[in-house]
Design a protein around this nucleic acid. Sequence first.
DNA 1: TCGGGTAACTAG
DNA 2: CATCGCTAGTTACCCGA
Length: 956
Amino acid sequence: MDLSSATEWGSINDSEIDLLLRERERREGAEEAVQVASSQPESLEATQADESGVQNSDDWGSMNDGEFISFVNKLSQSRGLKQPLITSQPVSDHADQGGSDQNIMSSNRASESFRSNSPLNDQDLQLSVDPAEVDQGSQEIEFGDFDTYFRHKALKQQEEDLQYVEFIKNARGLEYPPVFEGCVIYINGKTSPDAEQLHKLIILHGGTYIQALGAKGNATHIISETLTPQKKLEFRNYKVLKPTWITESIESKRLLHWADYMVIHNDYGQQRIDTAAKPVVEEEAEISQLSQITDPEDNLDKQEEVEMPDHMNCKHPNFLSNFFAKSRLHHLSSWKADLRSHFLHRAIDTLTSRKLEKVATSTRVILHVDFDCFFATVSALMHDPPIDINSVPVCVTHGGNTSDIASCNYVARAKGCRNGMWLRSARRLCPELVCLEYQFDEYERISKLFYEILLGFEIDSILPVSVDEALLDITSLSVTKSPAEIMTEIKQEVQKLTKCSVSCGSGPNVLLAKLALHRAKPNGMYYVHDDEVLTFLDTVRFADLPGIGPQICSKLETELNITNAWVTELRSVSKQKLSSVFGPKTGVTIFNYVRGIDDTTIDILANPEEYERKSLSIDVNWGIRFDTDVEVEKFLGDLAKEMNTRLLKVNMVGSSITLKLATRHPDAPVDPPKYLGMGHCEFVSRTTRFGHFTREAGILATELKHIYRAINPDVKELRGVSISMNKLVSDQKKTQKGLDADQKQLPFKSGLFKLDKPESLKPATKPKSPVRRNEGTFGIRESEINWEVFNELPSQIQKELKEELGRRNLGITGSLYESPKKRKVDFFSNFVSPKKKRPPERTLLDSNYIETRTPVSFQKTPITDFMGIMAKLGTWFDHSIQARGPHEKDLVLFNEFMFGLLEIDEMLKFHSIVRLFEEKLIMHKTATGYHEWSRLVNELRTIFNEVKYEDLEFGF
DNA sequence: TCGGGTAACTAG
DNA sequence: CATCGCTAGTTACCCGA
């Protein structure tokens, strides 16, 4: 694929096009080749329900304990979790009934880690993001999350709602019609059914529920039985509807018109009614025909009320998903990532199982295979009726003047059209150019087919290059067949099964295979024999060498005064000269390349670990137009969430994050020629280290905001935002290698603060399960409950499971060591509503209080000995600030302790600790752990201030 | 001379 | 109306220890 042959950055090269046109008048018939492919559809098809006998969660009550545990395990499996939640039967229950196949605990993780053992199936070749996994962002709540939480309660709620819906759909295997799609609903006061039930109904049917009515009118509908005069005034600009609107809409499986359910007939509603004063029957008929989405009236209403931005830019709530769904480059990148993580492992398994004896030869035969203008070909085939790409000039594009051409066929290229060119330019060159739609689904389908076909050949190795392009090692195969025969077979097979043509190039190394492919396009093949390497290279342009781009070419021009160079011309330049001009590495590479030398290996069996992901980034350089810092911070929060989702999907955590900002270049126009494009920009990037591994969205978001404030760019000049997680390790590796322990487990490990769980110091046998505090009341042994899995469940489900386990006396009291996350969520949910907050008469008789309350202590020192705790904290601080900052494990304890203080309303003690650290910080400005501690203390300060603020606000 | 952070470049 | 200019990886370069 050739993506950049004609990229138009910021300026339209009309004059160049003119030149081209004039030149073409003189002579007809240039050709070139190339093509692009890309992109994955975000198919929103529903997740397949688990059909393995998972019952409706409403049925919990009727199961016996064995069945219940089995049920829970199936739930966790249905969510794609690697391990069962509960790993054996409760002690009290008769052993081993229906659950024996789930007793494998963490022992199977190692084998799962790198290669998948499953037989050939769709999953192995899954190229796209599985929608079922997308919204399972973990609920880890750590320090950074306070900040986020208080700022974005609503977003948090919606994330949890999404997970809840996902989970329920999976567990029940039911589809709920998205009746309330696009509706943002607020519930006011007492209703029947009550708010909690309405909430669930709304989110299950595609709606968004908000628990607070934002200042800027973010709700599309309000549900209420009655309204006080005060509220009437307050809600005068909303559609206030009776709860029956919800229930009856669900019953009839479509959105009933709101006008029939109004609680108040205010001006706003009146107006609407007037314009919609047609008979209701007709109204409803229209809706059912067009679906509520296309109902022009409803759309209008939403736009007015939700305060939508005029256009789909970065301020739009769905901007990110919309953008990625339509971005060819995003699809291209994620396909490649998926190929490397999924297909590569499958290829390794397949090749290994064949046990192909390695041919004893030092010279290898490498083959490069690539579709001819992939997107254009596939889109033309999909067109109804199919288009003959050999006679009609076509291209794939979204279709505006400044829309990029993702791919054009060779007929169009003959007229001068190039991939990456803007449609307007291409139309000037070729007025009869036919525009085709993107067909991301089909590209992906063909790609899977392609790779299956390749794997069918007896190859030594295969390295995916892109969705439509792969490198093969055919050394063994070429013992019995000539490269030409092999290439012919591949071309025929692919043509037969995909109806698309591919080109093949082969030679003694990767470099020559690539150059041969270039020569072979379109729809051809070329083999560079060992003894004709130099002759072949005589006909190759320097710019066609892999890794040689426009910058290097222009450097060649300015530094060596060679333009339009042939490879041959570079042979006379010494290695030293090349190195001094292009840098040591690039210089040597060029020196070798022009002699046909390349030692790049594609042996995936020899070094599989080389293909493991080292970083994960998200770039948005289109549609970025902000007015305020608040908008940017919200956007950063969204990016952090997306990052969490993507990291979760690949089971990785990172210890450093980078924010890169693009701002308009001072010389560039405010509005670049490309609609919502970035234009010519300046870039800044900055990296922060966490000191521990994480993917928690709150932490990422907090860190990003800090960096953003530090960079402090002119908001209105922002044109691009990228974030990148670096220093990645897989979850499993982190556990196996004990990277936690590697990270300065704090001096007091040996003395003052003996951790009371010796096994936690042995990473190799580190238990998945936490050690409980309360002995005795558990029907299930601690080792039987996998808290890691439990913690991955949506908090709503956690709550329900917890209640059910409690009811069965199987036990979770919420006081478990490594389950602070859950407690924090509970804690927050008590904070969310001012009304619910700290009922003054809370007593020990209050069951909720008993259930969630834990004696507050730190390192076994009870809160009553506060001075003792302060002393410990001081020592901890002094030791760890000389190291790399606080250890994650200690932070968990500390975190829990501080939460405890808040929970029992010990604001003074909380503040004393913040003050203690703040004072100590001043004296350690140069210490190694200063940054980490400083960040932590700042968080604490923020929390304190915000909690205090909340107190004042609600009059406590 | 190194190691770490940032910027630039390339590919598809 | 428009339009969806992504991302992983390598290398160069600069700085301070």
